[in-house]
Design a protein around this nucleic acid. Structure first.
Lengths: 234, 234
DNA sequence: AAGTGGTCTAGACCACTCC
DNA sequence: GAGTGGTCTAGACCACTTA
């Protein structure tokens, strides 16, 4: 989008490098010239070449190692970046009216598979919140969440009548890491009731756990209404 | 992993910035000091601060705009990076024996939904390849692919008996862009037969189209065996 | 008009790893 | 031991945006 007057931009170098890889001028597995050499060729500073190659490496097209140099990847691992917005934002982006419907909010001992994730003593009681996100008053996604009140003390005072756990947690708790898994499940009776589909219907689900240090803060299963598709670009 | 002697590293600055955001020292929506100020505080060059903040911005924790400065994101859009390996690699990573079984390879006029993606004249004939990837001789994923021979001429000479289209294309065609969609579908009769599950079972699917310039090179639907889950970390 | 981030330069030192 | 990428510096100019 910008065209500085005199200098070579790192974007230009990135494009040229990617072109040479695409056109097989640099074959898969082959080593490409080192930074200093490319800097000379392009008539720019080595830092500029470094910036360009770092980006190409992040996309997985080349692999870089000190001393060994830079090689064109043999099996470029394609990387897709998923943007995972707050559900309310996702629905509003579809120009639909958002509403959250709290189904239940209890404290209970989690079932074994959930407890295992929290690496908690089996006796520990966790907060269990279930609610439905609606788009234009039609079911969009069912949120089934467990929260550890010991790790997130403020949560005890929240009723989740107006604000979904999804949104409250994003705004009030900073995560340090987590895992996400995407899968397909057959709708349970409860799923079918909440999401207005037939039992056994194929539903897209996201299971997410977020951590802070060693502690698991929260775990959630999002079960999307039938026909949902999560999309991104390469 | 490294601790240079005298200088401040950009990783250290990134950590400190993320800490301040996590600890609410910098509140959501608030503006943070500008680069020159932080450089002075940390006793380093502005370029180092820039590098650190650029990384934090890429993770979605802050938003940066010229003149407007850097703000802590109100709704941090979490970004998950999916590594999408070649299927053979994915199976071998599970310490399973990989095998590809070609089911059919024909040239045909694509059905309308496929043709639309190729923006081709309806009369165009595309290569249609269907095959099954097996892990330890058990069905892992069904690949149903359309390839435009006009965009990928070399493909006419490939029989796909030994090498799956998935693998062949990764090695022989460089993409410039594409779209990916993840969803859940009920197993069709053919899916059920190939993947050894009941018709109607909930299956995880990936639909991918890859482009080069304006041309759509190939489009594929990957239907995974029951119970498959795609995982990543935040 | 002015402030802020985006980028480039030229040079330097260092970390890592292959030979 | 030596070559390559990783990073930092100090300074500079520019692009973009808002006031």
């Amino acid at each position: 989008m910008n065209a500085p007057r005199t200098s070579t931009t790192w974007q230009a170098i990135r494009s040229e490098v990617m072109r040479r890889i695409a056109e097989r001028e640099w074959a898969p597995g082959a080593q490409i010239p080192h930074e200093a050499e490319l800097a000379q060729e392009f008539g720019c500073a080595r830092a500029t070449v470094n910036r360009a190659l770092r980006e190409v490496a992040e996309e997985g097209l080349v692999e870089r190692r000190r001393r060994a140099g830079t090689r064109v990847a043999l099996h470029p691992v394609r990387k897709a970046t998923l943007r995972i917005p707050v559900i309310r934002t996702e629905i509003e982006a579809r120009v639909a009216a958002y509403r959250f419907l709290l189904i239940s909010r209890t404290e209970a001992a989690p079932p074994p598979p959930v407890a295992a994730r929290f690496q908690a003593d089996g006796a520990a009681r966790l907060l269990h919140v279930v609610g439905l996100h609606l788009a234009d008053d039609r079911p969009f996604v069912l949120e089934d969440r467990w929260i550890d009140p010991k790790a997130v003390p403020e949560v005890r005072g929240v009723d989740f009548e107006d604000t979904s756990p999804n949104e409250w947690l994003v705004e009030n708790v900073t995560y340090q890491g987590g895992t996400i898994a995407f899968s397909a499940v057959a709708a349970s009776a409860a799923d079918a009731r909440a999401l207005d589909c037939a039992p056994g219907a194929a539903l897209f689900t996201i299971d997410r756990a977020t951590h802070k240090g060693d502690a698991t803060l929260t775990q959630v299963r999002l079960t999307y209404a039938q026909g949902y598709s999560m999309e991104t670009t390469l």
